[in-house]
Write a protein that binds this DNA or RNA. Structure first.
Lengths: 115, 115
DNA sequence: TGTCAATATCGACAGCAGTCAATGTCCGAG
DNA sequence: CTCGGACATTGACTGCTGTCGATATTGACA
């Protein structure tokens, strides 16, 4: 679960749009790993909450209450999102601030686009 | 697993872009359900294979060999994709032909886009 | 240094998901 | 009507995932 994605998956698009070129087995695994990180209601809301928060960043304590989950569970989901390259984590003092990784969601969206 | 998505999920977008408006709990579940259907290497390749096949449609027998999975497993994955509103199934004679649902992938991509 | 608060990690548990072999169902050919 | 082939369904097994309580870690502050 702590497995990091290949560099390409974190920095840019993993592959051409699905419907344009046949998806290779390796690319399929990479893309599926990124989508698995997204395919959870709690994690989707975390991304949305972080994006909506002041300054585009939020700490764990900001996210526990609106999500209605325990602190360990929220930390777990945040870790999954960080490992997937969708969020960055910056520790400042006792707090950990999370921010969206620019373009990360867009590069996934681009692979799904059919137009 | 046979649970169908709400009508809105099959016909159009489930919600506004993630980073534009806070994602409600219900929308999060709906969107996560769609993404779960995508978050599997075999299913991603199935979508790609169907799109690349002649006429944009393919039967199960066309998909078993390139995927390297058993026939029941391929049928299972296709069912998941149909239930998620990503593929349509049309039975012609003994064969079942699968086609991409227009705009289905795009509406998911749109929710993920941040621009 | 000792305490408190914010996070992370660990351990355990229940539920779900992917896979296959075996079997059932349905349709066309003969 | 029977047979064979294409596909779906069932049942079973394994491994993964979301969740929480308990505990460890880390840094600010008195």
């Amino acid at each position: 679960m702590t497995t990091l994605l290949p560099i390409a998956a974190e920095t840019g698009a993993c592959c051409a749009p699905l419907v344009r070129a046949p998806l290779g087995a390796d690319d399929a695994v990479t893309l599926a790993t990124q989508l698995k990180a997204l395919a959870d209601p709690a994690r989707l809301r975390l991304l949305s909450l972080v994006a909506a928060h002041d300054g585009g960043e939020a700490c764990v304590c900001d996210l526990i209450e609106p999500l209605g989950l325990s602190q360990p569970t929220v930390s777990h989901h945040l870790k999954v999102l960080v490992d997937a390259g969708l969020l960055t984590r910056e520790k400042r003092g006792v707090w950990a601030y999370f921010t969206l990784v620019p373009q990360a969601l867009d590069s996934i969206a681009r692979v799904l686009t059919t137009v």
